[in-house]
């Protein structure tokens, strides 16, 4: 006890010193640029040095820009679809690969490898694959917004399923064996075991995976840029041009690229983007945490009941 409190005192005394380097790095590389970014969203500028305060102009312009709303809609749709298309297969592949059979590690590695390839490279590789396949049907990837959208979904699913699978495998392995044995003894079927025992115990893994795939979906940029670049571009009857597969991050990038008059607006869009991604992530975390708090309580009751 004495020894422990001594260590605790030493930790308390020296902790700030050890935290300092990481904290300084965090401040330099995140807090300051983030603060500067928020400031710039209220300015008109070509380069940050020349920023001139322009009040809410950029936010007004951002909301008035129809391309922003459309990109937001595309992004929500993409994020929701990609969360499902990534997590459902990842869960079942992990379920399958949690068993013990010959070559299981090889399969796990094979599924994980796509995650190691960079987004831009993946985009170009997949555009060749898609175009190569679609050529047999006399069409091409960016001929239709539908192809472009599903192309993006397939690409990110291929890239991220392996990563989520690893997290799910860790989740499967942490399910208490006594509970599985108990379910077995009580005569639970495989699906009952899966949905009543395994799933409730894996809320943490599911929460992490949904969080990651959701935020990845919202932040998607490289793959969007290199696979479709926002194309096909439709010119509507009123002359407006619509980048039909443009997601939020690409929209911000394209806005910045128009000219210096749009730099501040792109910055304002980035701040709005941050608030949306932050808000959605917090909401998702809140919901899954609530779920997690409920489940163990039930589990304890059941255990107690059994002991009685």
């Amino acid at each position: 006890m004495v020894k422990n409190s001594g260590i605790r005192r030493a930790i308390r005394l020296w902790a700030p010193l050890f935290i300092l380097p990481a904290f300084v790095c965090f401040v330099i590389s995140f807090v300051i640029p983030f603060g500067q970014g928020i400031y710039l969203s209220f300015c008109e500028f070509n380069i940050p040095k020349d920023a001139a305060w322009s009040g809410m102009d950029n936010y007004t312009a951002a909301f008035a820009d129809p391309s922003f709303g459309r990109a937001m809609l595309n992004t929500f749709l993409f994020a929701v679809v990609s969360v499902i298309v990534i997590n459902v297969p990842a869960f079942f592949i992990a379920y399958f690969l949690s068993g013990k059979f010959k070559g299981v590690n090889l399969f796990r590695t094979a599924f994980f490898v796509p995650n190691l390839i960079g987004g831009v490279v993946l985009g170009y590789i997949w555009s060749m694959i898609f175009d190569g396949i679609l050529r047999y049907f006399g069409t091409y990837l960016i001929a239709s917004p539908v192809y472009g959208f599903w192309g993006l979904v397939i690409l990110v699913a291929w890239q991220q399923i392996g990563y989520m699978m690893i997290i799910y495998i860790a989740g499967f392995q942490s399910v208490p064996t006594d509970m599985l044995e108990a379910a077995d003894i009580d005569g639970a079927t495989r699906s009952q075991t899966l949905f009543r025992v395994i799933l409730p115990n894996m809320i943490s893994s599911i929460s992490v995976c949904v969080f990651l795939s959701l935020t990845n979906g919202f932040k998607l940029f490289d793959q969007n840029l290199s696979l479709t670049g926002g194309a096909p571009i439709k010119t509507l009857e009123n002359g407006m041009q619509v980048n039909t597969t443009e997601l939020l991050a690409l929209n911000i990038y394209n806005t910045y690229g128009i000219n210096r008059h749009w730099h501040g607006t792109a910055q304002a869009k980035a701040v709005i983007f941050f608030l949306i991604v932050g808000g959605v992530s917090l909401l998702q975390q809140y919901l899954t945490n609530r779920e997690r708090k409920i489940k163990p309580a039930k589990h304890t009751d059941a255990k107690e009941g059994k002991q009685k």
Binding site: G138, T139, A143, G229, G230, P232, I233, G257
Partner: peptide, 17 residues
């Protein structure tokens, strides 16, 4: 420039195909 060109390219692709 980039956006205008992208619009023309999209239409050219559809026309050529």
């Amino acid at each position: 420039t980039e956006s205008w060109r992208a619009g023309v390219v999209s239409a050219l692709m559809e026309y050529s195909e």
